[in-house]
């Protein structure tokens, strides 16, 4: 194991985050606060409670998930796309590092950033609404698992993308809609039957539901299924990354 390399990459990536602190931390915090104002106050005045939880508190886990997903994907995809774009990736490819080490460092850094961000948003939310966390360990587990899974997913997009447009495409066209339709702002039990069935094909539903369960003990789908789906998605991402590296796909050609 080339620990020096893993550490060098990880540290470089974290240093980048510090340099772009404003962009990487302040802006998600501001947009989350805006969600609170818009959704919490506007809709919250009509829907007072869901499953016995005040609407403002109900949307917190979904909001954190939203940020976690989008930030993990954009952090990781950009981190690997950028050196590919400017050409400095040559150094990574010529270095005595294994694929596992590369993934560990890049995905580790991207996940760290989004976890920190998730916790900051949690703290921000606590200023607006009274929060309670019934299963803090599970809460952290979901946080970490989701951050890692979607950082891997972002890493894949970053390697696949041949242009900045493609880099934005997947998050914009797939991830954002899925997140908004994933029950962040409502309980899927509030939907008509047919839409509820359709929604069950949306993986984000399981993430949000499981995460919300760790806060309030209530969920749209059983928590074991949530956990199972997240792990399945993680394994799919790992398999794709393994394939990318075995074939040198879009890296060594």
């Amino acid at each position: 194991m080339n620990f020096h390399a893993v550490w060098a990459i990880y540290r470089m990536e974290m240093a980048r985050a510090f340099r772009t602190m404003l962009q990487s931390i302040v802006s998600p915090v501001i947009s989350t606060s805006l969600y609170f104002v818009v959704f919490g106050s506007a809709i919250g005045s009509r829907i007072t409670e869901i499953d016995g939880i005040s609407y403002g508190a109900f949307i917190v886990p979904g909001l954190i998930m939203l940020t976690l997903l989008t930030q993990s994907i954009s952090n990781a995809s950009f981190a690997i796309y950028f050196p590919k774009f400017v050409g400095s990736i040559y150094e990574l490819l010529s270095a005595p590092v294994s694929y596992l080490e590369i993934v560990l460092a890049y995905v580790g850094a991207a996940a760290t950033k989004s976890i920190v961000l998730g916790l900051i948003i949690l703290a921000t939310a606590a200023l607006f609404v009274p929060l309670r966390i019934e299963h803090p360990v599970w809460m952290l587990a979901f946080l970490v698992l989701t951050a890692v899974t979607f950082s891997l997913f972002g890493f894949i997009i970053g390697i696949w993308a041949k242009s900045f447009e493609q880099l934005q495409l997947v998050p914009l066209l797939i991830v954002t809609p899925l997140t908004f339709l994933g029950g962040s702002f409502y309980s899927i039990n509030m939907l008509p039957d047919i839409w509820r069935t359709v929604t069950l094909f949306n993986p984000v539903v399981y993430l949000v539901s499981g995460f919300r369960w760790s806060f309030y003990g209530t969920s749209d789908v059983p928590v074991a299924i949530s956990l199972g789906m997240t792990v399945v998605f993680l394994l799919i991402c790992i398999a794709i990354v393994a394939w990318i590296f075995r074939t040198g796909y879009r890296l060594r050609n």
Binding site: N2, H4, A5, R11, M12, A15, E91, L92, P96, V97
Partner: peptide, 14 residues
């Protein structure tokens, strides 16, 4: 930072 990074990447202690 760049040069130290390269050294680490190639497995050498700082």
């Amino acid at each position: 930072a760049t040069v130290n990074y390269s050294r680490g990447l190639f497995g050498k202690p700082a």
